[in-house]
Simulated scan of single mutants.
Amino acid sequence: MKGIARFILYTILGWKMENDFPKEHKKYVVIAAPHTSWQDFPIAILARMSSGTMVNFIGKNSLFKGPFGFFFRGLGGTPVDRTKNNNLVDAIVDIFNSKEEFKLGLSPEGTRKKVEKWKTGFYYIAKGANVPIVMATLDFENKIIKISKPYFTTDDKEKDFKFFYAYYENIKGKNPHLS
């Protein structure tokens, strides 16, 4: 599968990958931004498959219903009910703590729409599970997927978020007006 994914991503679609997912850490949170199109998902899955690194994801409940539920679960997805007020951060921290190896990919925007401010769940998951954050981009303008080195959060949330936002500063998503 790795070879097929590489062929599709690099040869057919013309993408390049700068760096790879870190191999020295068995657990981390991957944040991918900007998330502006449905096309982000298949490109991200191909990048993950090309690298041979399993990165799980969560998605809205409706994606996992009907005929496509098995497909998204097979790709490493877990449904979440965003209409209920449940403590998703604690639940995901428990998953990290129960596994020897676990990587979770999230969109810090939480949607494909334009947002003024990112959601903070990914940050509190990383802090609670004591795992680093790896930043990933899908730069559609240049067809480059960038993966950062692991970043361990500090006790200064404002400083950490400035660092995150700076990493994504000039990245153009599929729909730049939504970035």
Rank of each mutant, 00 (worst) to 15 (best):
I58Y: 02
Y123R: 03
N19F: 00
K84M: 08
L13P: 06
I8L: 10
V29L: 05
K23I: 12
V30P: 00
F21S: 01
N19H: 11
M1K: 09
K113M: 12
M17R: 13
I171P: 01
S98T: 10
F57N: 01
K119D: 08
F102S: 05
R112N: 00
G128I: 11
F7K: 03
K103H: 12
L46F: 04
D139E: 08
D156T: 04
M54G: 03
I8M: 02
V115G: 03
T78H: 06
T120A: 13
N61S: 15
A91N: 12
T83G: 09
P67H: 10
N56L: 06
N142W: 05
Y167Q: 07
T11P: 06
K119T: 06
L75M: 09
N87T: 11
T53H: 12
T11H: 14
R48N: 11
D40V: 01
G128C: 10
I147L: 12
R82N: 07
A166N: 14
F70W: 15
N170C: 06
D155N: 14
V131L: 10
I95R: 11
E24P: 01
G69V: 04
P79V: 01
V30G: 04
I4L: 13
I45M: 15
E101S: 13
D90C: 03
I92K: 00
R6H: 12
K117C: 09
Y168Q: 02
N130M: 10
A126G: 05
H35M: 01
Y28C: 11
I8P: 00
M135T: 00
I95Q: 08
K174R: 13
P79H: 05
Y28L: 08
G66A: 02
L138E: 00
L75T: 10
Y165C: 11
M135V: 07
L88V: 07
D90I: 13
F102Y: 15
G59Y: 01
K103Q: 09
K113A: 15
Y167H: 04
N130Q: 11
W38V: 14
F64I: 04
M17K: 10
D90H: 06
D156M: 14
Y151I: 14
K114E: 04
V93P: 07
F161A: 09
G121S: 14
K117H: 12
N61H: 15
L104I: 01
K99W: 07
